[in-house]
Design a protein around this nucleic acid. Structure first.
Lengths: 209, 209
DNA sequence: GCATAAATTAATTGTATTATTAAATATACA
DNA sequence: TGTATATTTAATAATACAATTAATTTATGC
């Protein structure tokens, strides 16, 4: 069945992995099935044999990564944590996922602008998990607000702040890196620092008065 | 010289305007010179007659919009304003510019990922204006920090926070709008609210302790 | 009005791309 | 071993695109 039985990865998986890499780097339209095949080291027709169309192939990649992204944002935190610790950890986890998948915002953003239809498949995913982080912190949040420990806001609003800060940084970061010709190590330092900074900003934004 | 002398807009300007619209909507690679010509109502060769290559045409669009974007972020505020008022106004101006040019982040972001070389031309632009907002607030900021009115941070760091928050929102916003099938008016309300929210978050993030 | 230059078009070239088809090769399995 | 099935390839069709060329139309200055 397999041509190269020494490797335990199938050709199909190899094609998918290659496509993943290229789509994340350059987006849908700048990536050709020819290039995917070339880099994967197989015939171009094979890409279509396994995935029929470029669009379906992209879809496979998109599904996988949207799941990573969405769940990092919406997953519940451990219940025993305090409210502030939940928020802090949420920021950090979301940040780390983006750090590990720097191509992710690009993939998403590109799709919103060029093919918003593809986002529809996310509705189900998000609808299902809506009673996750948001519903988890909702009651706790209104309690803190009543106590006067936190200024009035909604759970969704808080989540949007977290998303904005982290997402914005991962868009602005590469931009900054490019125009200031920063070294990789410098960039790493910057991002480490901004992770702490983003957490600080968000936690401070909760304060009342 | 002009085919249609009743309009005071030249064909060249019309082509540029059409290209602007399409590039902002769909990015470089999904926009063809054929489509530009079609929508502008002229022959495709004319696009190349005026701008030689698609790349140069894009460059013209990019230059124009990058100037808008960069200067909204780096321009000095009126000197007479208090420090807090300077920050507040900076957030609002930057926000408003993005609101008026919703395609702008996409244009930039796309270029970073697909053709970082084009960003080099921004270096000069940014280098020149570096002694603008940042240098304007730098001394004032360190004064406030010494007084203990603001927690320790750099002017660049503060600007990055502003950029992150606003940019992030304008990426996350369309995403939210799409997956929640929001009406335009609802979206407008959301953004109005988030403008105030972003300002609040950023001003709160200055607080010491 | 006429010559010159500018603006515009039709036609075409070369290339890249997605997708399909039919043939070839490898694998499984009985 | 032999046959069915899965995998892989070469070849190619169909299309879209950027860019060029030569010809045509339109405007301008004299």
């Amino acid at each position: 069945m397999k041509k190269n039985p020494t490797q335990d990865i199938t050709t199909e998986q190899l094609i998918l992995a290659t496509a993943e890499k290229l789509f994340l780097e350059k987006g849908y339209s700048l990536t050709s099935t020819t290039e995917i095949a070339k880099i994967a080291g197989c015939n171009q027709a094979l890409v279509h044999y396994y995935f029929r169309t470029k669009d379906r192939l992209f879809d496979a990649v998109f599904k996988k990564h949207s799941t990573i992204f969405i769940s990092s944002l919406l997953q519940r935190m451990e219940d025993h944590l305090s409210f502030e610790e939940k928020v802090r950890k949420k920021v950090e986890i979301h940040f780390d996922v983006m750090m590990e998948n720097p191509g992710l915002p690009f993939l998403f953003f590109n799709e919103i602008n060029t093919n918003p239809g593809r986002l529809n498949q996310l509705k189900v995913q998000i609808g299902n998990s809506e009673n996750s982080f948001i519903s988890q912190i909702e009651s706790e949040l209104s309690l803190e607000i009543e106590k006067g420990a936190i200024r009035p806001m909604t759970a969704t609003g808080l989540l949007l702040t977290i998303l904005s800060m982290n997402l914005g940084l991962f868009i602005a970061g590469p931009f900054l890196k490019t125009i200031t010709t920063m070294q990789d190590s410098e960039y790493q330092n910057l991002m480490d620092h901004r992770k702490r900074e983003n957490t600080t900003v968000i936690l401070k934004s909760l304060r009342p008065e």
